[in-house]
């Protein structure tokens, strides 16, 4: 593999990788490309999968609710907080793909709150409101981004969270 020092004393160097994936991949000819579009093909594959998305979203919401139930019954500690965070983080990452963008927004807000507040200082009522909101939105199949009730909920939770974080950073 080719090496090229990039500073006078030779402590840093640029290395050319020995393998080039272009040798394993071919750019399709115009005729072939007209018959096969990888992106459209992947989108079609996802569409075929989408019949399962509602069940998957319900399952993710159940996982979040179960993590919250554990905190309610056994108390909040670092481990249980992490389990709740991971469940919210999964929903944040997947909800849009599964067709529930506003649920993803609530989960994102919950992650934002948990990332900026130490576990013992977490406002549990506000956390519970996020969990309840996600559960309700999934139960009511609030998939549309213009769903007025869901949108109001998202905005309100984001406002309350921002207020809390502002007060906390101001030391109030």
């Amino acid at each position: 593999m080719a090496r090229e020092p990039i500073d006078p004393d030779g402590r840093n160097e640029v290395v050319k990788p020995p393998r080039d994936l272009r040798s394993k991949v071919r750019v399709l000819s115009g005729r072939e490309a007209a018959q096969f579009d990888p992106v459209k093909s992947a989108e079609a594959a996802l569409e075929r999968l989408s019949g399962d998305f509602e069940n998957w979203m319900e399952d993710e919401a159940r996982t979040l609710a179960a993590a919250w139930a554990d905190i309610q019954s056994d108390g909040l500690d670092e481990d249980r907080s992490q389990v709740l965070f991971r469940a919210a983080h999964d929903i944040k990452g997947q909800a849009s793909t599964l067709g529930y963008p506003l649920v993803g927004a609530v989960a994102g807000n919950l992650c934002h709150l948990m990332e900026h507040v130490d576990t013992p200082a977490l406002p549990l009522t506000l956390v519970a409101q996020h969990v309840d909101a996600i559960r309700a939105m999934v139960q009511e199949k609030a998939r549309q981004e213009d769903n007025p009730t869901a949108r109001a909920l998202v905005e309100r939770l984001a406002d309350v969270t921002d207020d809390f974080l502002t007060r906390q950073s101001d030391g109030k």
């Binding site: 990039i6 840093n12 160097e13 640029v14 290395v15 050319k16 990788p17 080039d20 994936l21 272009r22 991949v25 990888p38 992106v39 459209k40 992947a42 989108e43 996802l46 944040k92 990452g93 997947q94 909800a95 849009s96 793909t97 993803g104």
Partner: peptide, 24 residues
Amino acid sequence: KPVSARGLYLRIANCILNPRDFVR
């Protein structure tokens, strides 16, 4: 995330067609 078919393809194609050199 969220992943999109186009976004992921773009990154895979970038890794293949525009490989980066490495820095040590």
